[in-house]
Design a protein around this nucleic acid. Sequence first.
DNA 1: CCAACCGCGGTCATTACATCA
DNA 2: TCTGATGTAATGACCGCGGTT
Length: 259
Amino acid sequence: MSRGFDVNRFPAVMVHEDQADQDVAALSSSPPNSATSSFQMDFCMYSSKGRSESHNEADQAERASSRASDEDENGSARKKLRLSKDQSAFLEESFKEHNTLTPKQKLALAKELNLRPRQVEVWFQNRRARTKLKQTEVDCEYLKRCCETLTEENRRLHKELQELRALKTSNPFYMQLPATTLTMCPSCERVATTSTSTAAATTTTATPTATAATTTTTTNNQNNTADPTSKTTGLSLGSTRPRFYPFSHTQTHPHQHTA
DNA sequence: CCAACCGCGGTCATTACATCA
DNA sequence: TCTGATGTAATGACCGCGGTT
């Protein structure tokens, strides 16, 4: 990403920095190229060292300067400074450990990286926001796929319904068979079928022999197309269909449903 | 109630990189 | 092949708002 030159090293950058930073940097006890840390050698030009160690003082000063307008004394627009790879990597590591900072951590990080505390703060804010955004996009994609699955399921069921209605009108004899109702297992929310003469549902079956099959058939919510009985049993017309949970990945069934 | 602080969402500005004529 | 214009993604910085202390 950072190619050729590091903006942070440009002397011109200093023009943008508040004068207080430069003053205290000049008084810093650590020499510019001491490189006591592997992360310090790259960005000593951009030091905010020498700030008060008091959180309140530091933060107040920070706030006073950083929350102010982005124009400096010269009235020039804000300049964007690119962090070095090392700085970014270090911040990333810190972010993995804790995605928010205490004032103490902020100051420590800023000192370690030779950045202003405000920069560290902003970096973490942006990092949180963009992480969240990314996660939202992932969730969105997932929901989109779920929606497509449900749409397909809906289309398939409509088609099945039409076929069965056509069958019903062309062969009304089967309507005299006992109606079939569905009951749902409250624990697993799968459906077991029962035959009842009192059921008012306008349920029918595709074939006379399928009636027997309906008494033991269970419906797998997510594997309807794979269910060998799903096409032939013709269950559930006029009955409550088990709810489809896109977020449920339960595939196994702990017990047998019987009529 | 007020002020200071903090996080977040939204936005802008700048930079690095890719593409293309 | 080189080069400048243009588009785009990434990212540093800021503002304003609302919640908390």
